[in-house]
Design a protein around this nucleic acid. Structure first.
Lengths: 162, 162
DNA sequence: AATATTTGTTAGTGTAGCGTACAAAACCAA
DNA sequence: TTGGTTTTGTACGCTACACTAACAAATATT
């Protein structure tokens, strides 16, 4: 049930001679993928104790911010399809962090809300996220962080509102 | 064997009222993940005909640029562990795009090289990558592209050499 | 009322990351 | 040179997740 994870799977350190990536170093998508990988690994390490993935935390967070949200709404905001959203919700529900109840307005929808456990876990998760983000942001100035978010937003299509 | 993929799984369009992401919009990692997702989806669509993933193309590209490279070397450059690298190499080898041969210098290593098919597929892949990158870069000025690559490099730890 | 869309759901496929364990080759230290 | 350590490739198993396809119930549309 719980993920087996004892040691962080840090990629092996770069060695002299390994640095040359050839032409591929000019491919933006390649850099995004490597950066996401690095963030993913650090995130996973940071969340070993809570045993949560990036998607799971994002989902808890969004449900916490928007109680009674429907799965389809969650899926749109997280840019996932319904089937994948189902799987993540199922996992969180199985761990009693989140529950489904029928929506009063629309019989097709299920309203999602956090359980007491879910709220507690979300609080801990937010604390860990702050540490994780500090690790991530420590290499940038505030202006660079804003720039990075702005540039990334142009790719994924959502624009920061402040 | 071949992936079944007929229709791009574009996430459903954002609706009025969906835009509010709450506090999570300030999390850099969240934006990186969404951006990677958007790039991944466009990449997958672009590579439907060749039936290749981002990792598979990156691997073909690196092997093409560095013939006789060992798996462990590939893994380091792509920042993957050996087990995952094995899986990707196995898939490419099963499709006759890439082959292993014993390394003359080091009996432990296997030298990787592209087959004729692999070279041909890589050429097509590079053409598609150019189109894909155009799609990605079209929203940025040249200076912004450089900035983005530079900022992402600080995360994944590799610095562009030009 | 008939038709179309939305939503949740299940089932199945493919890709990927990681832990663990093992064997062979290479390297290093005494 | 022997004996311990490291590197490399490999196999097995588990988890996460993106996607397709298909279905039923509820709702919207015409």
């Amino acid at each position: 049930m719980a993920r087996k994870k004892k040691i962080l799977a840090t990629p092996e350190p770069i060695r002299p001679g390994d640095e040359d990536l050839g032409e591929i170093r000019n491919i933006v998508g390649f850099h995004i993928r490597l950066a996401q990988g690095a963030v993913y690994r650090h995130f996973t390490e940071a969340f070993t104790s809570l045993d949560l993935t990036q998607k799971q935390v994002s989902m808890l967070w969004l449900v916490g911010d928007h109680p009674q949200i429907a799965q389809s709404d969650l899926a749109r905001r997280m840019r996932m399809d319904r089937a994948t959203t189902m799987a993540v919700v199922n996992r969180l529900e199985a761990r009693n962090l989140l529950e489904r109840q029928p929506s009063p307005n629309d019989g097709r929808k299920h309203a999602l809300y956090l359980t007491d456990d879910g709220n507690q876990v979300l609080s801990s998760a937010k604390a860990l996220i702050n540490q994780h983000e500090e690790w991530l942001k420590s290499r940038f100035s505030d202006a660079e962080v804003s720039t990075l978010i702005e540039l990334l937003s142009r790719i994924h299509g959502w624009f920061p509102t402040d």
